[in-house]
């Protein structure tokens, strides 16, 4: 930036608006940095004790893990966006997939499976029961997406913007009550301690 360019839209957005857009090298070690960074950014715009901070930090990590596990073997970058312009907060991950990858279809099937349950909690309990007793080696056994719906409280959406790309968006609608009431502390040490630095 030259210094002469304005921060587009910044002054027109309401307080608490947030947009983080990153292009990440597909390296596992970066996920923890993003998880912590998302938590700290949300702590800055929400109440530091808001439960959505932990929830969406986890959602960020799970979506990125999925992109790295099932993305194209030669993918060069993973797109990651967090956006909040009102109450809903959306986290989007877009990445390349191999043209013949079964992952996009498997993901759609998984999301449809979750949607069949009356609640995400019931889907999560069912997913755990499916995995219990199954001792075959597996990654997360498809638990990540159900966890995003249940623990993250997010609605999930996936699309394929191109034959070799997949986009997954998790949207958390509506405000949550903070874990404790009271004003935001002047010293962010409390939130900082909870979101411990990545060493």
């Amino acid at each position: 930036m030259t210094g002469a360019e304005p921060l587009a839209g910044a002054v027109f957005n309401p307080p608490g608006a947030l947009r983080i857009e990153l292009s990440l090298a597909p390296e596992w070690g970066r996920i923890e940095f993003i998880r912590v960074a998302v938590g700290q950014a949300l702590a800055a715009v929400l109440h530091p004790h808001d439960d959505r901070i932990d929830a969406l930090s986890m959602v960020s990590a799970e979506l990125l893990e999925n992109a790295l596990k099932y993305g194209a073997r030669d993918q060069r970058a993973v797109g990651f966006t967090v956006e909040r312009t009102g109450d809903p907060i959306a986290i989007t991950v877009e990445n390349a997939v191999d043209a013949a990858s079964p992952h996009p279809d498997a993901l759609r099937v998984r999301l449809a499976w979750i949607a069949r349950f009356p609640s995400p909690a019931q889907a999560y309990l069912a997913a755990l029961r499916d995995l219990y007793g199954d001792e075959r080696p597996r990654g997360s056994g498809g638990l990540g997406m159900v966890r995003i719906a249940y623990e993250g409280g997010c609605a999930l959406h996936c699309e394929t913007p191109a034959v070799d790309r997949i986009l997954v968006r998790a949207t958390l609608a509506g405000p949550a009550a903070p874990r404790s009431s009271g004003p935001v502390p002047e010293d962010p040490g409390d939130a900082g301690e909870r979101l411990r630095r990545v060493d």
């Binding site: 799970e62 893990e65 995995l131 219990y132 056994g141 638990l143 966890r147 411990r196």
Partner: peptide, 17 residues
């Protein structure tokens, strides 16, 4: 614990079993 991923939850389930 500050955080664990779903793969770790699966490992915990396996030790429970």
């Amino acid at each position: 614990m500050e955080h664990f991923n779903s793969s770790t939850i699966l490992s915990i389930m396996q030790i429970i079993q």
